[in-house]
Design a protein around this nucleic acid. Structure first.
Lengths: 271, 271
DNA sequence: ACCTGAACACCGTTCAAGT
DNA sequence: ACCTGAACACCGTTCAAGT
């Protein structure tokens, strides 16, 4: 299911569920959630709105299919460290400041020498996590969509996909079997929450006037925090300086490091 | 802002932003996101749709206000262990099997005797976390709404509110100052992700035919996992048994324990 | 089997008109 | 200052009719 990103058909090829999903992703990437309309979709596919209903039950099911396709692609990075696979027919918005591939990696290796961790499994978890992080950054609508779908049907197709790819790495970590569920859930929830929030930052930054770049955006938020009511928000205010010049990706990985450390402490590897 | 849950006015009292938000919450609780309509809202408030626009910019702003109100209320539990505050004008669906107030608390105290943790701060974090957990369980639409709003404006009013109440507890934990941001973010993201997902479970269970109770629901999901493709989902399949008879609340707290352990290991208390 | 496109019910939002 | 309610533009979805 992964990759296969060609795109040369347009009106010749017959309509298909796959083409519809592909076009839907393009619309979402280009114009956000409100940009996905059955009319816009059918125009792009050079057909009538009714035709789409032959291949897709309704808008909800279409969104589910779209979400599943993007997640499947993101998770297909699987083994290996860097080098992303395909990108599920997107195109538009590049990965932003795509420079350092997890350089520094938030003090990986574990501050304090937390023992017993398989380094490969640790890398595996980071790879999966960054795969999702990047997918959400590339498709900002994915964060909300993921929440919506996991909310609506936790037993759907997306949850097992995420669970499987994260869980395999947890198992490889040497965590005892009766803790697999807890450890995997914790990682999954953190990844979804953090990736969603962080992607939001880039999306917002991107939405600002072009001459206002990312640093300026963080400056703005930081300033907003500094202007909060001192009585109600003393803690948040005190953190405003740390917000300036913080790196999303590094922060994200630091959180993963935290959870991995917790896992190995609370559920020490059996070996 | 918290509590004040009276409700006796209906058509006599003048329209106000507060009454609109209150009515919106009732509609959302009763009929989900699709139930909140400017027409339904104005009917409930015995007025015309246009009147609402005098007090509220548009639907997005209304949803923001609604989300903020519920979160403010949930977070206002603040100190103290149990005993919830008000419940932000909801009414409908009770808290489900509201029996044990965090009994057992997922082996609190820390398996293996993780040192240095202030017990009070630990309880404080659990209280905040459970406050949000319960709020989302009571208002299932909140999960999606939270994701949407944090996505749209991470510098909005909700993020600082969560950050502040979680962060204060992190500080009380004795974590060194330069790790406050990382630790607070990790907790916040986990809480949002996990609470959302778990609330989804109860919501789904509630939506099933009334004679099908929660255990039966978990059975269904568990069975679905057992029927996944053995080649693609070996790990998830192997976890199906653990899913049967697992307790959302306990699982949620176990995750928090994990992260707290990670925090104290990676960022040991200064004292 | 698959596609067309007009039609329906419904929604967010606006705005001239009222008090 | 605040409310009314008809009107507008747009949306998801349906369905008789075509090929």
């Amino acid at each position: 299911m992964a990759t296969r990103t060609r795109r040369s058909q347009r009106r010749t090829e017959a309509l298909s569920r796959e083409r519809i999903v592909e076009a839907a992703i393009e619309l979402l990437d280009a114009a956000g959630e409100s940009g996905l309309t059955f009319r816009a979709l059918s125009e792009r596919l050079a057909t009538g709105p009714g035709a789409i209903y032959w291949h897709v039950e309704n808008k909800g099911e279409l969104l589910d299919a779209v979400t599943d396709a993007v997640v499947a692609d993101a998770v297909a990075v699987e083994a290996g460290g860097s080098g992303r696979a395909g990108g599920a027919a997107s195109g538009s918005t590049g990965a932003g400041r795509a420079g350092g591939e997890a350089t520094g990696a938030a003090g990986a290796g574990g501050a304090g020498g937390v023992g017993g961790l398989s380094g490969a499994a640790r890398d595996g978890i980071q790879a999966v996590a960054l795969g999702l992080f990047d997918a959400i950054e590339e498709h900002p609508w994915l964060a909300t969509q993921l929440a919506t779908q996991l909310s609506r049907s936790p037993w759907g197709t997306v949850a097992p996909r995420l669970f499987e790819s994260i869980g395999r790495q947890v198992r490889a970590l040497g965590v005892p079997e009766d803790s697999w569920f807890t450890a995997t859930s914790a990682l999954m929830h953190y990844i979804l929450g953090a990736a969603g929030q962080n992607a939001a930052n880039s999306a917002s930054a991107r939405a600002l006037p072009p001459d206002v770049d990312r640093d300026r955006f963080l400056d703005t938020v930081s300033t907003a925090w500094e202007e909060l009511d001192p009585d109600e928000y003393p803690f948040t205010r005190s953190l405003a300086p740390q917000l300036r010049g913080h790196d999303d990706r590094e922060q994200f990985l630091a959180g993963i490091t935290l959870i991995l450390a917790g896992i190995t402490v609370v559920h020490p590897p059996a070996g």
